[in-house]
Design a protein around this nucleic acid. Structure first.
Lengths: 234, 234
DNA sequence: ACTAATTATCGTCACTACGACGAAAATTGG
DNA sequence: CCAATTTTCGTCGTAGTGACGATAATTAGT
């Protein structure tokens, strides 16, 4: 045990995901200052002296998206602290994963430079070790769709089974059978509850609307086939 | 985004688990200095100025157990940073989860005060927020037994199906059917591979010996019933 | 208005996996 | 030699799933 610790700065970085136009998109900001000036990076910033970690993550999320309400989902992802990960010095970054519905288009930088939704397939080099953090975040999201009703965090409060299926397909990167998916979602207790309304205006038969159900875990889980590791277009 | 971060100290704390005598046990140390002097705590310490986080965790684990080799399992758990969690000041702790076979009895403090395996059911109040960290670690271990071959990390290199079942029963806190467990373990591709040897000396029929197989994930997972939330004797 | 295309929803069927349990094999302890 | 114990192999009924057929309810096109 070391008696006295060295001094570090602590940051939070956010992996903010949404589903737009049938693909997984990530919220990125373009850095306006060195290091990595001009490079795309995950939104984030330093933790304030008396600020709790989840509060810091929520604050950064609100600053970057203009969203404050309890919509979506926010959870701690992992912590990254390689000594050389930040050229400014020893910075330990606690990464958070946020899942949001598409609607709240990021208010282009209330603070930082331009913030944009970037489809995951078109992301190039990122600043710092953010590529790794992003990869970990996407994998976490993919895994959690299996055994939690978290996919609903990508949807507005009311949604259709088809919209929920689009979330799964976008995040997992593979098509699902609409009929089996419908059976699974409506048959798993507590996953979704019907609101009574219907969703007119679409092309085909109007779909019933649902809200997120009370279940915290899906039983049994909805397993993705890992036999054929999804063609992951990075 | 905040321009300059405040200064923090960064620690690693370890949730070290093993299975002894059919129960889950946790490695604890008795604090020799304030704060919480005399209280039991998770082993841990400050990260060195140029040390990577996994390296710090591995170092503390080696210091506390005398174990250096690649036996067992070590993974990052979560990070705890409540402003008031340490009376000495702002300390952010990155917790790691370690799973070890029973054999390496902790060398009673090469550095800290007494280190001991404590059965989980007999743990009282812990220092800092270590009770919460421990609870998170146990839940992580429980969950990972479902979909990974991680239970083998609690076993020596060669083990029997019965020993592996004891691990599951100890960690989950509920009995499993020996016949169905045997079918599942030997039938899941890559979970375990037979070594050819047998385990004489026990009471009943000698059991075949196995090694950990190449699989990283179990397909399909071995789900614990969550219907009846394990009588968790805390 | 009628038809084609489209999407949602309901059903069927075969197969896998699992829980509950029987039974045989192979040992130790008395 | 017998009882107890533990391992290992089977059996049976049921739940869950993938593949896919069929029907319902709408929009787009002619």
């Amino acid at each position: 045990m070391t008696q006295n610790g060295a001094e570090f700065r602590v940051a939070v970085d956010l992996v903010v995901l949404t589903v737009r136009d049938g693909t997984l998109a990530v919220l990125l900001v373009r850095r306006g200052i060195p290091p990595y000036r001009g490079r795309w990076a995950l939104p984030g910033g330093f933790v304030l002296p008396d600020e709790d970690l989840p509060a810091a993550a929520a604050r950064e999320l609100a600053e970057e998206t203009g969203l404050a309400g309890p919509a979506g989902h926010l959870e701690q992802l992992a912590t990254y602290g390689r000594p050389a990960r930040d050229p400014r010095g020893r910075v330990v970054s606690v990464a958070y994963l946020a899942l949001l519905p598409d609607l709240p288009v990021p208010v282009a930088g209330s603070d930082a430079a331009a913030a944009r939704w970037v489809p995951r397939a078109r992301i190039g080099a990122l600043a710092f070790d953010h590529a790794r953090i992003l990869a970990d975040g996407v994998e976490r999201a993919r895994a959690k769709l299996e055994y939690t009703p978290l996919a609903t965090a990508f949807c507005p409060p009311e949604f259709t089974v088809g919209a929920l299926r689009e979330v799964y397909e976008s995040v997992w990167g593979r098509p699902l059978d609409a009929r089996n998916f419908h059976r699974k979602v409506t048959g798993t207790p507590g996953f979704v509850v019907p609101t009574g309304g219907a969703d007119a205006g679409g092309r085909g038969r109007p779909a019933r609307r649902y809200r997120r159900g009370p279940a915290a875990l899906l039983h049994p889980p909805m397993l993705r086939d890992r036999g054929d590791p999804a063609a992951d277009t990075v």
